[in-house]
Nucleic acid binder design. Structure first.
Lengths: 154, 154
DNA sequence: ATTCATGCAAAATCTTTGCACTGAT
DNA sequence: ATCAGTGCAAAGATTTTGCATGAAT
């Protein structure tokens, strides 16, 4: 964990930004909640637990900065808010998401899976791909199981 | 064009909704600007040209209704606004988008391309896919050409 | 009459901005 | 002394909601 924080610190320094206590607290929250997909408000509340003096605007500014540096990716699942997701280290591309329309859970797919598709798109549409967003909406395995056992009950 | 309007009318009636003049004007705007990716505000301004008495709230309510009926898809390219995109008739899945980070143009890919990927996701993650969103961010062929000719100039 | 839909304005959200202030170089 | 970074409050932008009115059955 410390390693990743240090690495992020270096990324900031490389662009002449400082890792202030507020920024560090924000990054720590992101690292500690990597599996979640926190909104700015979510991050704010979590940071506030450890550093109560921080302002929401600072969180927004930090998240914007981290997005610029590609430390996090800003995503939108269609509810009204932006969410922030840490990039995995060494990940070439942004990972994909599975959004469950029953329970709202968001699972991640780290595998690329799009290599072939991207090759086709680059060739056939002559489009130079820099980034992508892929989200599937459907029913997660947990909700499928739950339904199946409910069927059995009846 | 009339055919599609009629078909949408039937979809509304099937769910006990009426195609009011305001809704019809909104649908017409969507049909006439199918290539674009209009925000609610965009739609509102275009509808207003033909039916100046319409209110913005009605446009929002109509777009929400059309989204529910899967006549349009609501998408978000990361700027702060939702955009509304007509589903192609007979299209099994929502189409994909190419967003140019230079000029902002949004091109569409009607081809599915994801069949193999979806099969893998359904099997390996046991996720029942109902819908998807795939957007590539990069440089469109027009901007690539522009850059190339500028290079030649210099 | 009843019901659904509308227009308008107000409210609710989410996000950004202005500004005075602080802290590190 | 400078300058990036911060907190707070205000402003902005987008979207939703309440309510009186209007249209259609």
């Amino acid at each position: 964990m410390e390693n990743r924080l240090d690495r992020i610190k270096k990324q900031l320094h490389a662009q002449k930004y400082k890792l202030t206590p507020q920024r560090e607290a924000t990054v720590r929250v992101l690292l500690e909640n990597e599996a979640d997909h926190l909104s700015a408000e979510d991050v704010y509340l979590l940071v506030k637990e450890k550093a109560p003096e921080i302002g929401l605007a600072t969180v927004y500014r930090t998240l914007e900065l981290l997005t610029e540096l590609k430390v996090v990716d800003k995503i939108n699942f269609g509810d009204g808010v932006s969410r922030y997701d840490l990039r995995r280290e060494g990940a070439e591309h942004f990972h994909h998401h599975l959004v469950c329309i029953e329970c709202g859970a968001v699972d991640e797919i780290q595998e690329d899976l799009l290599e072939d598709v991207e090759k086709i798109v680059e060739e056939r549409w002559r489009f130079k791909i820099k980034d992508h967003r892929l989200t599937f909406h459907g029913i997660c395995h947990r909700c499928q199981d739950k339904k199946a056992s409910e069927q059995k009950q009846a």
